[in-house]
């Protein structure tokens, strides 16, 4: 699946997008975040805040949302548009 990062999440991870396959047992957004945190200090820093929001295939998704079948998962801070 494709992972997208925006705003300070993007800055901390150090890239805007990547392709990744989560290991077996990672089935929800919350579990995916926990796995991402384990991938290195830049990920740990990017995902240290509980305020991070996620979207699955361009729709907002809660931490318990299932990621099976997702093509594109985005992570970003709380929105500040308007």
């Amino acid at each position: 699946m494709k992972l997208l990062y925006f705003a300070w999440v993007r800055e901390r991870v150090g890239r805007a997008e990547e392709v990744a396959e989560a290991p077996a047992g990672v089935s929800t957004i919350g579990e995916l975040i926990a796995w991402l945190r384990s991938r290195g200090p830049e990920y740990a820093h990017a995902f240290e805040s509980d305020a991070i929001r996620a979207a699955i295939d361009r729709r907002h998704a809660k931490p318990d949302a299932k990621i099976a079948g997702a093509r594109e998962i985005a992570f970003f801070p709380p929105m500040t548009g308007g």
């Binding site: 705003a7 305020a51 801070p77 709380p78 929105m79 500040t80 548009g81 308007g82």
Partner: peptide
């Protein structure tokens, strides 16, 4: 407007003489 502020995926970054910083959600 109320919905857009909290759910449309936009993020503001302010540039001042002191540098740039992300705006915190309110």
């Amino acid at each position: 407007m109320d919905y857009l502020k909290t759910s449309a995926p936009f993020w503001k970054r302010e540039e001042t003489a002191d540098g740039a910083s992300w705006v915190a959600a309110k």
